[in-house]
Amino acid sequence: MTIDRIVVFILLLWVFLKTIGYAKWTWDKKNKLGGIMIFVVALAALILPIYSMYFRD
């Protein structure tokens, strides 16, 4: 694993955690569907880049 990939991974993880925080806040505001959908987007924004970085080649 090269240093640039580690940096990208840390950035992706940071975005994921921030988005999860917003999903939880939305869930707590009684908008469960909104919370779930934000969680799905956060997950996709973490998995898709990792897939294309590590497994696509």
């Binding site: 992706l12 988005t19 917003y22």
Partner: peptide, 16 residues
């Protein structure tokens, strides 16, 4: 999805 803010979604959608 009746959300209150859109700005926290800038980065995840940007990445997608």
């Amino acid at each position: 999805f009746n959300l209150k803010y859109y700005r926290p979604l800038l980065f995840p959608f940007g990445i997608l």
